[in-house]
Nucleic acid binder design. Structure first.
Lengths: 247, 247
DNA sequence: TTTCCTTCTTGATCGTGGTCATGGCGCCAT
DNA sequence: ATGGCGCCATGACCACGATCAAGAAGGAAA
């Protein structure tokens, strides 16, 4: 009995070890040597999987940790004053959640699981302290934040210069690319988010999302059935996504 | 003669010292002790002032440094493929330029002076190395990036949910607040950017910017004459800026 | 199953803001 | 002064996508 428990505990720990994690080539410790990775492993905390709809943290709660997505997906939503919610990000496995909370010491948005999702919790004070002695880790942290800045700029361009069609096309090509990098099919995947989420994220009404999905389908660009997506003509989608403005 | 030169050189160095800089309470070394600030001082590099229209760096050139604005102002512009330019940011004194270049080791946009502008150059490798031994500096760097992430999210909300009026109102209240924090009048200032820049930044056509400025003027919210701005009713502007959607 | 409720689709109408076109104004160079 | 040229303002028109409205399809719980 005791043995079983120990065994089980060990296997749980095993699961959370970066060295055995399939995402290690994409995730924060990517640049670390084996011995350094052990140190990093020692500070991360396991969390019980989140069920669909559960919040990882809520807007305004004190910032303590950043999180790396292990499996599943999440969305970040911010509510401001009188206004409606704004969905500012989707997070996929290996991505870091919560970096925008460092500044004001609380999280600027609520992050919610879109499906059953597991994350690694990384207490920020310990991460910061460890980054003192591990330059590679520090560099990777800087790079992660810098990449997020860059992605944000891309999003601003999308929101201020692209038509609805181009936005949807960008959304699909970007998802496709992110799946590809993670070793999944870039052509066939399941959307974990609703049409409303997509619309909110892209600055479009739900109805517009639906209509354009229909149009894409009739143009032979994608085959969509509910949340199941098959990309039929990735080059055409990419072209569409990279055009700009209306003309 | 040699004495004069030495004196001059010393005074130039003096100018660039963080301890005597009026921005030190807002800028990167804000959290440093006096002795640590000397170390930081030692790595920053003086640059000749940029004239209006001159580029600090160009899109695609190798990332080497971040820059702190000392005086003047700049804009960041990215060009993508076939598309038009997108103005992603304006920079005022004490703000850090170039953080989004860390990731891919080149600058993702061209940064251009909007008027005569001086900056402090901070070579990133030396900054990173120094951040190893100065936790306060490291923390401030994390916070700067985190703040920029947060500002980007605010901008996304503006671009995807606000009407043209609300965007202009946000633009003015935000500028007003930034001037106030820097010790300038929050009610009366000069725009260093053109209407076209404002429109590009806010995702609006120049004509729309002009029209709404006219409307604001006739509503008694602001008095605008060319690039000279007087804010007459800041509370009303703030209310307008914080409303959301059309309704 | 049946029910209930959420999510998605499709249609009709309308409004904000983009586009095009023109004219005025400020600013600099000569 | 006198062009010349960006920059800015204003008017007329139009299109993209939001909004309103209704119904279909999917999913969870009894």
């Amino acid at each position: 009995m005791a043995d079983t428990l120990t065994g089980r505990r060990r296997s749980v720990l095993q699961e959370t070890r970066c060295q055995t994690c399939s995402l290690s080539s994409l995730c924060l410790p990517l640049a670390l040597e084996v011995e350094d990775m052990d140190q990093f492993d020692a500070i991360i905390r396991r969390r019980a999987p989140l069920k669909k709809g559960e919040a990882l943290f809520r807007q305004g709660s004190p910032f303590t940790s950043v999180f790396a997505v292990r499996s599943g997906s999440l969305k970040q939503v911010t509510t401001e004053g009188s206004g409606e919610d704004q969905l500012t990000n989707f997070y996929l496995p290996s991505e870091l959640v919560g970096l925008d909370g460092i500044d004001e010491e609380h999280y600027p948005g609520t992050v919610v699981a879109l499906e059953t999702t597991t994350v690694c919790e990384i207490p920020f004070d310990r991460l910061d302290h460890l980054s003192e002695s591990l330059p590679e880790l520090r560099g990777q942290l800087y790079r992660s934040m810098s990449k997020e800045l860059r992605d944000d700029r891309r999003m601003m361009r999308l929101l201020s210069r692209k038509t609805a069609d181009q936005r949807l096309a960008s959304f699909f090509t970007s998802l496709s690319e992110r799946f590809r990098r993670r070793g999944y099919s870039p052509y066939s995947f399941r959307l974990s988010m609703s049409r409303a989420d997509i619309g909110n994220y892209l600055g479009l009404a739900v109805e517009t999302v639906s209509r354009i999905l229909g149009r894409f389908q009739s143009q032979g660009l994608v085959a969509v059935s509910g949340r199941e997506v098959n990309i039929l003509d990735l080059p055409a989608l990419t072209r569409l996504a990279e055009e700009e403005g209306a003309h």
